[in-house]
Design a binder for these strands. Structure first.
Lengths: 182, 182
DNA sequence: CAGGACATGTAACAGGTTACATGATTAT
DNA sequence: ATAATCATGTAACCTGTTACATGTCCTG
C-alpha cells in the first residue's frame, strides 16, 4: 500500500515526472522505500485513474514528451487520511536469518563469506548515511517541519544499518569460533 | 525465494505437515520469516512437483487426513547450494518512514500516537525475545551447531527490535518538541 | 561511435494477501 | 452454544521482479 503513498508524498512536495520520481527512489526516498521504474509508471497510471493526480504532457525538442504529474486535492486528502490511519506491523523477512538456520546443511566457510560481504555493503551504506547526516543536518536540534522529518527518517536508516553491521559481527565471531573448535 | 528454503530448513530438521510448518511460522521461524498457511500449502505443492520433498498421507480417526512431508536428497542438495550462494541486499521498505515524510500533510498528534503504538508492540516483542534468550540460552558462550545458529538468529531479532524501539523514542521526542514549539 | 542520461511503456511471471470453503474434535 | 484447534484447500487479486522495446541527446 505504501508505494502509492510514497509517490503521493513526492508529488505533494513538488510536481514531477515518473522519471524524476524514479530517481528519488534511487536516492532520498530509496532510504526508506524502493521501487523500480515499472512499478512507478504503473502506479502513476492507477493514481490518475483514481483521480489522485493529474498530469500535463510537455513536449520537448529532441526528447520524448514527458508527463508532469501534480497531486490533486483528492490526492492530498487521501494522503492525509492515510498518514493518520493505523499501519500494521510489518512481517519479518530476513534472508540471512533463513541462511543461518540452513548453515548446518551447507558449508560454514561460504556462509561466513556471505555474511562478511553483506556486512561490508551495509557498512558502506551506513557511512553514506552518516556522511549525509553530517553534511545536511550538522545541528539537528533546531530542525522543524519537513527538514526534521527527513532527518528523523535518515536517523532510522543509520540505526538500522548500524544494528545490522553489529549483528553481522556477532554472527561472524560466533561462526568462526565454531570452526576453530573443529 | 527464501520461502521455499525456509520450508526446506524446517523439513530438513524434521518431517512435518503443512499445518505444523504453519505453526512454526507463527513461532520460531516467524522470528525471521513469516508466511500464511495458503503460501505454505501452495509452496509445498510446488516443492513436491519439483521433487524436493515427498509426502505420505496419514489417515486419522475423526480428523481429516494429513500429509507428512519429508525432504528428499535432491531437496537437501538444493538447500545446501542455496545456503552457499550469494544473497542480494534486501531493498528497504519502511511504512513508518513514508508516514513520517507524509507527516506535514497530516496531523502530527495522530502520527505520534501511531508511533507510540508501534513502539509498544515492538517493545513487547523485544521482551518476548529477551525472555526467550534468557530461558533457552542462558550460557551462549558454549553453544555450537544448530543451537548456536538459532541463538544468533534470535540475537538478530533482539537487535532489530531494540533499534526500532530506540528509533521510535527518538522520533517521538523530536515530533513532541515540534508540537511544543508551536 | 559507444555509453549514459532522459523518457515512457508492454508483457509475463513470481510472490504475497484476502476471502471463501469444509468439517470433526475438544474445551469453556 | 461458541470458540479454538486440527487439517487442507480454491480463487481472485494486488504487488514486485525481470525481460523486452523504443528513440534522442550529450559526453568522452
Amino acid at each position: 500500500m505504501a508505494l502509492e503513498h510514497a509517490i503521493l508524498v513526492s508529488l505533494a512536495e513538488r510536481p514531477g515526472t515518473g522519471y524524476e520520481i524514479g530517481q528519488q527512489f534511487d536516492r532520498s526516498i530509496g532510504y526508506f522505500w524502493s521501487a523500480t521504474h515499472q512499478q512507478i509508471y504503473r502506479t502513476l497510471k492507477k493514481l490518475h485513474t483514481d483521480g489522485l493526480v493529474s498530469f500535463e504532457s510537455v513536449s520537448q525538442d529532441g526528447r520524448p514528451d514527458k508527463k508532469v504529474y501534480t497531486i490533486s486535492d483528492q490526492g492530498r486528502k487521501v494522503l492525509a487520511e492515510w498518514a493518520m490511519s493505523p499501519t500494521r506491523l510489518q512481517p519479518m523477512h530476513s534472508d540471512l536469518g533463513v541462511k543461518l538456520r540452513a548453515a548446518e546443511f551447507g558449508d560454514l566457510a561460504a556462509i561466513i563469506g556471505e555474511l562478511k560481504s553483506h556486512r561490508d555493503e551495509h557498512l558502506a551504506q551506513l557511512k553514506v548515511f552518516t556522511g549525509f547526516a553530517a553534511d545536511y543536518y550538522p545541528e539537528p536540534d533546531g530542525l522543524t517541519g519537513r527538514k526534521l522529518h527527513q532527518y528523523l527518517v535518515l536517523r532510522g536508516g543509520i540505526r538500522s544499518e548500524q544494528a545490522f553491521v553489529d549483528w553481522c559481527d556477532e554472527v561472524i565471531a560466533g561462526l568462526e569460533g565454531e570452526i576453530a573448535d573443529l
